[in-house]
């Protein structure tokens, strides 16, 4: 048995508290089975209209936290409030983008993108108009009648994104959305996400294991540490607004932030 006493865990406090939080996570813990603590007493709020990343090594519970916010998983303890109301299950104000796209292989791009609206009972012509708009928005105009297996991985995820955007939710929950697409597509995707955030004025919760991606796209990065899953650090990348993507990747603040995060994470990887 180790004699060293564990250092008392101190929860990091963000530089600025969210003034207008849309999601509040209060004392959320998740235990799988009897003793696997995926999340341990998480308290965090997410600012309206911001893109917040959950970043951490694998096994830190970031996807678990996202799914609890989505209402797809029940927390063992604690609660999540969305717009002040406790979450009991999935709801129309939250839309999920899946890591493996989760498209229906038997349905066309149009039917996949309109799925959420159909479930809400929106009449066909109206939902197809909306879906068509968002299919174009994600850059897939002209592909409405194609089927998922006719599309590349990146294009499939765009359909997943269009489906999530079409229901006009306030919050988009994205679970490593770009991890299953190739590097070039991924960069293009991140840039599109940038633009989309400006246009759509939605709140994004973004799970990723890529440091560069997190620093690049986020207003705030919540870093989680594994076993038990806790918040280890909160970083607001101070990257100048309106910088173009090519300059950003050479920006000093960007590079320093990436390095700082890597130093914080490496002890869990080694």
């Amino acid at each position: 048995m180790s004699l060293a006493l564990a250092k008392k865990y101190e929860e990091p406090t963000p530089v600025t508290k969210p003034s207008n939080p849309i999601i509040e996570v209060r004392g959320v813990s998740k235990v799988y089975g009897n003793d696997v603590v995926a999340l341990d007493n998480i308290n965090i709020a997410f600012e309206t209209g911001h893109l917040t990343s959950l970043l951490g090594p694998s096994g830190c519970g970031k996807t678990t936290l996202l799914k609890i916010v989505a209402g797809l998983l029940q927390p063992t303890a604690g609660e999540v409030l969305v717009k002040g109301k406790p979450v009991t299950g999935p709801g129309p104000e939250r839309a999920f983008v899946f890591q493996d796209f989760a498209l229906m292989p038997w349905a066309s791009v149009m039917d996949n993108a309109a799925f959420g609206l159909k479930m809400q009972g929106v009449p066909r012509s109206e939902r197809e108009d909306k879906a068509r708009h968002y299919i174009a928005e994600v850059g897939l105009a002209g592909f409405e009648k194609k089927y998922p297996h006719e599309l590349s991985g990146g294009m499939r995820q765009r359909v997943g994104l269009a489906r999530a955007l079409a229901v006009n939710a306030d919050v988009l929950l994205m679970d490593e959305p770009f991890s299953a697409v190739d590097e070039q597509t991924r960069r293009k995707f991140q840039e599109d996400l940038f633009r989309l955030r400006e246009v759509e004025k939605k709140t994004f919760l973004f799970v990723t294991h890529s440091i560069e991606e997190a620093v690049y796209v986020s207003d705030r990065i919540i870093m989680l540490s594994p076993r038990p899953g806790r918040i280890s650090e909160i970083i607001d990348p101070a990257i100048p607004k309106g910088i173009n993507p090519d300059d950003l990747r050479r920006n000093d603040v960007y590079l320093d932030t990436v390095e700082q995060i890597w130093q914080g994470i490496r002890k869990y990887v080694e």
């Binding site: 299950g89 999920f96 493996d100 989760a102 229906m104 799925f115 479930m119 809400q120 489906r163």
Partner: peptide, 10 residues
């Protein structure tokens, strides 16, 4: 995830 998707979209 397809089943999760159907649940999350109600």
């Amino acid at each position: 995830s397809l089943m999760e998707m159907s649940r999350s979209f109600g």
